[in-house]
Design a protein around this nucleic acid. Structure first.
Lengths: 354, 354
DNA sequence: TTGAAAGCGGTACCAT
DNA sequence: ATGGTACCGCTTTCAA
């Protein structure tokens, strides 16, 4: 406590450099002197070089910053995010690197401040709205970034690891259209920034703020349009969260009206599971009365027979970590697109009356 | 990139202090000058004060270090750990604080090095073996710690947030003994340090390396002893992990032998769920043929009717964060013991033949 | 092998 | 309101 390199140096009558070397470059001094130094340090209660000072000097911290929208606690509720972090963590620990989980304030200015001030060597952005400007801050700090969101990340220190969100969503849309559904509702998590769930009208989905949900919506729209289901006929429900209960609530908007939807497309499995609950509560059966699809293929999806898109969030996290920890020199490998599969199970079936 | 405070100062012919103030203390200079500074900074691609340098000088980082044993990725697999982190995160984000998730190497020396080098303001230790010496490193760094493990943490900067592990375990043991069970097996996660599951003999549980499992084992032993079940009759199985599959495997050791156990006590719900699977695979029913107990009361426990100890890992995490973020002045509040309850459900019943 | 000195990029106190 | 000037604690040439 309170002891510094100098303290030890003085106590032994050696120079600071030597003490520093005793910790950071053992080969630069005699083993004997080194052990004398280490002993004295222990005796004086010196904990070793101050990490702050060391990283200021060396420019390395040993941590990668993970940018997560809004509440961190939510990150730990969502199975997909947890899987992603698990993969990322696996990659990080192999290099004795830590993960700095950074809660991003809602206010863009505050968000930027936080990103500017994070003590890290690199960033991983996960589910961050386009407008908050954190990518700009990162690049102005000159730090590497990997994102699953913006495939336009292509600078020398910028990487992309993700899936083809739009193509995957298109598969879902096509599947639903092929089954003859014409009254379709889409439950989208955080389609818009506000905090309340409800029906919204989005004439231009290309302007939605979150890359992931935006792309998925665009994919659904493309597929439905190809099957002559006009976008204006599609009911869009914004879901202000990623919990099952919110999915259940949101599904209610699609179910409790005269022209009940015959198909509910959810942008995540968690929401879809909620929708299935909503059906059950109304005496309806998923796959017969109303078709339901999800996205992600979390473990529970298989258990309830949910039709969904399979992706491996864990792989995605792992790859993101690896890309950051030893950056590929080959520019082609700076952008990785992982595979997805449409998994058709029991919750989708022909539109009733066909 | 490459621009510093000085760069901006020179460009405007003002002093570094002023530029610094423009960022850190807006009230110390005229709004006009401030905006001129900020503009120039933007123009010159200056990202704002270097976080490393700032934290070296100010002594604050805005992050709390979370020490997790072995693989971080495991932390994200275990529902209990995830819940704990969720609570911790909730407390942290309220103060614009980040969480540095630190994977602790197996090797004690490496572990200490990592802890010594972590750029944080405080630590939270979660499931760390006694012998690795990280607590000592933390205290020599003079940083606050909160742990759920060692209630002996009582220094002015040391806090404890946990449950009475032993008393809770004692309740389980008493419950099992009261049901008449005499052939008892205990599945314990990480009872010993090695990486393989199997039957072990532990004559002195008080020497087990992990606080949490040690206390629980001691609690079980006390309760069983009080009911005249000698410790030497109890089958102890070490489980090298915290996955359901490992619980299933471990339960096999207790089931596939002549004097099959009539009760399986697991130190966590996840293991208990695995044990129930092991029973099913052998055509046995939990609660009738063999009683099973868990610990934690994770959501799935209720679903399968598991008898267990209820605790709130999320509360624990939240409280740990709060204690670190604004330390109680009252010494009594430096040690918080959260409540637990024995929840008796369907997986425990009278010993067969009674 | 060891030591001296110059930063790394800021912040904070004290003048002005 | 702005500037001057010590540091913060360590690493890193370079010289001895």
């Amino acid at each position: 406590m309170g002891a510094t390199l100098q303290t030890i140096a003085d106590a032994l009558g050696v120079s600071r450099s030597t003490v520093s070397n005793a910790y950071s470059r053992p080969d630069q001094l005699s083993p004997e002197l080194r052990s004398r130094i280490l002993d004295t340090a222990r005796r004086l209660g010196y904990a070793g070089p101050n990490p702050n000072a060391r990283s200021l000097r060396s420019g390395k911290v040993g941590a990668i910053g993970v940018l997560l929208t809004a509440n961190l606690s939510l990150a730990f509720s969502d199975p997909c995010t947890v899987a992603f972090l698990r993969g990322l963590a696996a990659a990080a620990e192999r290099r004795e690197t830590s993960l700095l989980l950074i809660p991003l304030p809602k206010d863009p200015e505050a968000a930027q401040r936080v990103v500017r001030g994070a003590v890290v060597d690199a960033f991983c952005v996960y589910f961050v709205p386009d407008w908050c400007g954190v990518l700009e801050v990162i690049s102005s700090r000159g730090l590497p970034v990997v994102g699953g969101e913006d495939p336009e990340l292509i600078g020398p220190d910028q990487f992309h690891v993700g899936i083809d969100e739009r193509a995957a969503a298109r598969e879902v849309g096509t599947h639903i259209a092929n089954l003859g559904h014409r009254r379709v509702a889409i439950l989208g998590h955080w389609l818009v920034g506000n905090r309340t769930s409800g029906i919204i009208q989005v004439d231009a989905p290309e302007d939605l703020p979150y890359f992931v949900t935006r792309e998925r919506i665009l994919g659904y729209r493309e597929a439905l349009a190809a099957a002559d289901v006009p976008w204006s006929d599609v009911l869009l429900v914004n879901v202000a969260g990623s919990h099952r209960a919110e999915g259940e609530l949101a599904a209610g908007f699609a179910l409790d009206r005269g022209d009940r939807a015959t198909a509910i497309i959810a942008t995540s499995d968690v929401l879809a599971l909620g929708a299935i609950q909503a059906l059950a509560a109304r005496g309806l059966r998923a796959g017969r009365d109303v078709s339901v699809t999800g996205f992600d293929d979390i473990p529970e999806a298989a258990a309830v027979g949910l039709t969904t898109i399979r992706q491996s969030s864990e792989d995605r996290g792992r790859l993101a970590g690896e890309v950051l920890l030893d950056p590929p020199t080959d520019p082609d490998r700076r952008c990785r697109v992982l595979p997805t599969t449409l998994v058709v199970r029991a919750t989708t079936g022909p539109a009733p009356g066909l």
